[in-house]
């Protein structure tokens, strides 16, 4: 099962002829992703890695029945690309592009909510998603992931890799890993993805990686408390981040005492999640609690060392 994407996903890459677009198209294809089309206005008729390029999404969808889009279009034009995908019936849009103006995303999100409530957007400013051994729709290094029973949802790219790598080392594979992105306005939230993992029979445990800023982790905690019986593990980055400074991601900022790591960790603990404090111990903690590691019962804590 897994969530969102599998070997049947038919992917169209928007911005396929660009440097990033063509490089990652090759990588995704080599991983086994079913990439059926590319779109770059004015480059219709060409091909990239043997994949046909179209001028418009309309043509690409008509000719190839693509049902998922992966976007590398530069920031000033990315909102347009997302809407073009939605207007042509794409139900899953994965936008990798970094640096899209917030106002554009406010408009896109609002448009989606009103016109395509069933469509799903991942990102922008995210690594994409991967269902190991089936489809990699994003820019993550495929080889650090392995198939298994843990679902990962994360705001941060490299931290997703770190977590997946640690899990894989303890023999814990993943159903799907989703990077939802670090921008203030983005598509699927932590809660949305956790909801999908909760419904997925193959996913037996959920690992959520959050960071300072906003209240998305708190909202996820509420959902976990009310609806999730599967074990949930959480790590929140930014305990030491000073207030008022934007920590790389546009969304990662503590303002007016809101969005602190401490508040998020507290909410998650209250919801019954296992909160991991030490980012080097994510894999080990999950393994220990899921019983993969043979350790005495009383040692079932999330201490750092």
């Amino acid at each position: 099962m897994a969530i969102l994407a599998d070997k049947n996903s038919r992917v169209v890459v928007q911005g396929i002829t660009g440097r990033e677009g063509s490089f990652h198209t090759a990588q995704c294809k080599a991983y086994g992703t079913n990439i059926v089309a590319g779109v770059t206005p004015g480059k219709g008729g060409q091909s990239v890695e043997g994949i046909p390029v179209f001028n418009t999404m309309e043509e690409a969808v008509k000719e190839t029945n693509a049902n998922c889009s992966l976007i590398f279009v530069p920031a000033p034009f990315a909102a347009d690309a997302i809407v073009e995908a939605l207007d042509n019936g794409i139900k899953l849009v994965v936008c990798i592009t970094e640096g899209i103006p917030t106002k554009d995303m406010i408009m896109v999100k609002d448009y989606m909510k009103k016109n395509y409530p069933d469509a799903k957007l991942i990102g922008p400013n995210c690594p994409g998603l991967i269902t190991p051994n089936e489809a990699k729709i994003g820019i993550m290094p495929g080889h650090i992931f392995s198939r298994g029973k843990v679902g990962i949802v994360s705001r941060s790219g490299t931290l997703t890799y770190e977590a997946a790598y640690q899990l894989t080392r303890y023999g814990l594979g993943q159903t799907t890993a989703v990077g939802i992105g670090g921008d203030p306005v983005h598509g699927l939230s932590h809660k949305d993805v956790i909801e999908l993992f909760n419904q997925d029979p193959e996913t037996e445990a959920i690992l959520m990686i959050g960071e300072i800023g906003g209240t998305a982790e708190e909202e996820a905690a509420e959902y976990i408390e009310d609806c999730v019986d599967k074990p949930v593990f959480a790590y929140i980055a930014g305990i030491t981040a000073p207030p008022g400074k934007r920590m790389g991601h546009a969304g990662a900022i503590i303002t007016g005492g809101r969005g602190t790591a401490q508040a998020k960790m507290k909410a998650l603990e209250k919801a019954g999640a296992y909160v991991v404090e030490n980012p080097a111990r994510i894999g080990e903690t999950v393994a220990r609690i899921l019983g993969v590691l043979e350790i005495a019962e009383e040692d079932k804590t999330c201490d750092t060392d």
Binding site: L159, I209, E211, T240, A241, P242, G248, H249
Partner: peptide
């Protein structure tokens, strides 16, 4: 971003950068 301690961090990715700051503190 300048902070107050004495360990310089060089990291790739904002999330991992924050995690690195946190683990130094730990």
């Amino acid at each position: 971003i300048k902070l107050n301690g004495n360990i310089g961090c060089m990291v790739n990715g904002a999330g991992l950068a924050m995690a690195t700051m946190d683990i130094i503190k730990l």
